[in-house]
């Protein structure tokens, strides 16, 4: 066997790949579910915090800023490890899925709150005043005038940040979540061949490459006009 053939046989072994394809597909399904949940809950929580912050209640705002700072400063893996290995000592035992979901949601919440907030404060005061003077209530002005403009500005940075955090679903493998990486790793130790890892890598690229390209497109499409 030549070196090249041996390399192919090691990393692209068709037999091994065929045997573990169902496992990887199952893992992909878990990754997609987890990613979708994280994106939905993280963005909703982030937007809710940004809206709450726009009310201008000082003690509440200090608490929001501290929470956001906390989850921007902590590595996601540290949060996952704390929730999964730490909380059970206090009698709460979240599953690996819940631990990963909760951690990434908190992180995405923190980052998206910052981005939404930056979008809201970037809208000139005149917009608020004009909206209120036509008789719109505070809520109506926010919802119908300010947010539509603010959200447009936030889409490119939000997309990139969301992709970066969603990739963190792979961290779930550290707490034995059977997502793509977890499934691939156990398949490698069962088959003593790294081909499942190649398959898992391909699954990640298929899932996330289009998102990265979309992010790049949005960035050029919605660039701030100066």
């Amino acid at each position: 066997m030549s070196n090249w053939e041996r390399f192919i046989d090691t990393f692209f072994n068709a037999q091994v790949m065929a045997r573990y394809l169902p496992d990887i597909l199952y893992g992909t399904l878990i990754t997609i579910q987890l990613a979708a949940l994280v994106i939905a809950s993280g963005l909703v929580a982030g937007l809710a915090l940004a809206l709450l912050r726009s009310l201008g209640l000082r003690p509440v705002n200090l608490l929001i800023v501290f929470t956001v700072d906390l989850f921007r400063a902590l590595p996601p893996l540290v949060i996952i490890v704390f929730i999964y290995f730490g909380l059970p000592t206090a009698g709460i035992s979240p599953s690996s899925f819940v631990s990963t979901w909760l951690s990434l949601t908190l992180v995405l919440m923190a980052f998206s709150e910052e981005i939404f907030w930056a979008g809201i404060i970037s809208i000139p005061k005149g917009q608020w005043e004009a909206a209120r003077s036509t008789g719109l209530s505070y809520g109506q002005a926010l919802l119908n005038v300010v947010l539509p403009q603010a959200l447009r500005l936030t889409i490119p940075p939000l997309t990139n940040r969301t992709i970066a955090i969603t990739k963190g679903t792979a961290l779930g493998s550290v707490v034995a979540l059977s997502e793509i990486l977890g499934m691939a790793s156990s398949a490698v130790s069962n088959s003593y061949n790294p081909s499942p890892l190649t398959l898992g890598a391909a699954a990640y690229v298929i899932l996330f490459f289009p998102m990265v390209v979309l992010g790049r497109w949005l960035e050029t499409r919605m660039r701030w006009k100066r």
Binding site: A170, A201, V205, F209
Partner: peptide
């Protein structure tokens, strides 16, 4: 650039760490 932005760093790390003994 887009490939490595799409690839979770942990997967890359595990790939190198678990894959290298096989070569």
């Amino acid at each position: 650039v887009d490939f490595f932005r799409a690839f979770p760093p942990l997967v890359l790390l595990i790939f190198l760490y678990a894959g290298s003994p096989f070569v």
